[in-house]
């Protein structure tokens, strides 16, 4: 069967990437295998579970439903890129406080989805959070602690009133 190789130039977590990718390589596999960014998890590989959620040009997307070559020219944030040092972000701290994870497999996708949502709309209500997180499957927690964590993390995304 034919295949083709392509140059892809994009940015991941603020760092420039210039690589050659095979046409059929998904962005999730490219991140994990070629760039060794294994924080992005791959669950179902067909767009149902949400574990592979990353942020491309400000929008949360499923990296298993995106070809690596299609990322050419874009800016990508993965779970490795949401904190700037070794510490936890307020969102991650809220996840820990509320026990919003057990096995942790879905957590990178949950964090990236919640991070994109709260960046867009820090005033989102519980129904809105539930609606958005319905695209991410968790088989451990029963979701309630995840929703509590995201509700609590909203405060950290709000802009100061006088800013």
């Amino acid at each position: 069967m034919p295949t083709s190789k392509h140059r892809a130039v994009f940015e991941v977590n603020g760092k420039a990437v210039d690589i050659e990718v095979e046409s059929r390589t998904t962005l999730s596999d490219c991140l994990r295998h070629q760039l060794r960014l294994t924080g992005t998890h791959v669950g179902c590989e067909h767009g149902v579970c949400g574990a592979c959620t990353i942020i491309i040009d400000g929008a949360a997307v499923r990296s298993c439903l995106t070809l690596a070559v299609q990322a050419d020219g874009s800016q990508i944030t993965t779970v490795e890129g949401i904190s700037f040092d070794e510490g936890l972000t307020p969102l991650q701290t809220a996840f820990r406080k509320h026990h919003a994870l057990q096995c942790g497999f879905c957590t990178p996708g949950m964090l990236m989805t919640a991070h994109a949502l709260l960046t867009e709309n820090p005033d989102v209500d519980e129904e809105g959070i539930r609606h958005v997180l319905s695209g991410n499957i968790c088989r451990c927690t029963g979701y309630i602690p995840i929703i509590q964590a995201v509700l609590e993390a909203r405060a950290a995304y709000k802009k100061p009133e006088n800013a």
């Binding site: 959620t53 929008a59 997307v61 989805t113 695209g135």
Partner: peptide, 9 residues
């Protein structure tokens, strides 16, 4: 239609 991440693309 679908979920948040899919709706973006």
């Amino acid at each position: 239609v679908a979920h948040y991440q899919i709706r973006n693309r």
